[in-house]
Design a protein around this nucleic acid. Sequence first.
DNA 1: TAATAATTGGAGATTAGTTACAAAAGGAGT
DNA 2: ACTCCTTTTGTAACTAATCTCCAATTATTA
Lengths: 97, 97
Amino acid sequence: MDDIDYSLLKQMAVTIGEAAKITDIPIRKLRYWEDKGYIKSVEEQAHTTRRFDYYMVKKIVLMKELIEDGYTVEAASQKVEVRMGELRQVFDNLTRK
Amino acid sequence: MDDIDYSLLKQMAVTIGEAAKITDIPIRKLRYWEDKGYIKSVEEQAHTTRRFDYYMVKKIVLMKELIEDGYTVEAASQKVEVRMGELRQVFDNLTRK
DNA sequence: TAATAATTGGAGATTAGTTACAAAAGGAGT
DNA sequence: ACTCCTTTTGTAACTAATCTCCAATTATTA
């Protein structure tokens, strides 16, 4: 199996519509979650529209599972952050270059 | 390191504008390459606009290198396909589910 | 220089995404 | 039921992004 190019993966950020399709969460709800700070889109001055990278889409998927299991949005967000610790660090390090 | 979720990765398809930024190839040229069949966007009835998945963006990056090295677009496309054999199969298999 | 490959331009239309204001459900505790 | 807070949803008016289809231009090579 070819190794995944993490630097490239980091750049593969999808639109909110795409993220909504992938995660099966309404666009409107994703915007709300972002307003509340539970998720965040890629920050780039060049972008006038939102983009979500692999890490964030994965986070949304995991949050959804926890929420369906009874967790609040807030709690789900925190739990997922902890659980995804390693991947988050990889993505964070890639940003600082 | 967390393992990458290939099923999710497969779905992380970016717009043509995003692909253009990532690869530093003009949108217009990407459309031309697609017209000629050197690259192809995700086929989904739901999409009225183009989307390129990780495999295809990676292919574009590699094609670009070969072209800068003197290969024709056609030759670069073929060479990259061979070189990316394993990854292509992974993506192909994910499609058939 | 003729033929093919490769790239680029732009008009006019459509689709996707934005913010901002507001309203409606839902849940927990009193 | 009532209150407070969380969570979700609706919509209008606007901007950004992408689309197709026409064609023209610039290499490159026989």
